[in-house]
Computed example of a mutant assay.
Amino acid sequence: MDTSKKVYIAGPLFSEGELDFNTKLKEAIEKKGFAVYLPQENSEDNVHMRHEHKQNYIFQKNVEIIDDSDIIIAVLDGADVDSGTSWEIGYAYAKGKSIFGLRTDFRTLGSEGMINLMIDQSADAIAFDIPGVLEILEQ
């Protein structure tokens, strides 16, 4: 396991539950020794900054952090993957970053599978719980 690698967590951050889950995921990854970037903290992506019309700042900061990261952990929960998370996955894929998905949501997209095929094919691996993400990172 190379803990010198930097991890960016992509995922929705619009509810208290999402914010708490992101923090829980970050703390678990940090315990394994990785440096972790979390947009709700590191790019100040929060309701206050959005009300202040700092969208360009948030966007540029997240792009810089993705560029500086080695690994993207993308939270894929929901009936459909969060649109911002989908963009981050696509950008990271184009940049040649390692992308690992995390889907704790048991809903499926019918006979097509659990997530959009473009997201599925962009990911190097998908885990179904936080221990599974940690196992992927240890490989």
Rank of each mutant, 00 (worst) to 15 (best):
D70Q: 01
I65R: 01
W87D: 05
G101N: 05
I119H: 08
D20N: 11
H51Y: 15
P39Y: 05
K54G: 07
S86A: 09
K95Y: 07
K5T: 01
D120N: 11
H51T: 07
D45T: 00
E44I: 01
N62T: 03
Q55A: 05
Q40F: 11
L137M: 12
H53E: 15
D67C: 01
A74F: 09
Y8V: 00
D77N: 08
K6M: 07
L13D: 15
I29K: 11
W87R: 06
I126N: 12
K26R: 09
M1T: 10
K31A: 12
S111L: 03
P39G: 04
A125L: 13
F128S: 12
A74N: 09
L134N: 12
K32W: 14
T23C: 08
K24E: 15
E135S: 03
D105F: 00
I119N: 12
V133D: 10
E138Y: 11
L134F: 11
I130V: 06
G84E: 05
A10Q: 04
G33T: 09
D80F: 05
H48F: 13
I71L: 02
Y93C: 00
I73E: 09
A127H: 15
V63N: 03
E41T: 06
L19N: 14
V7Y: 15
G110W: 08
F14D: 14
L25Y: 13
E27H: 12
R50M: 11
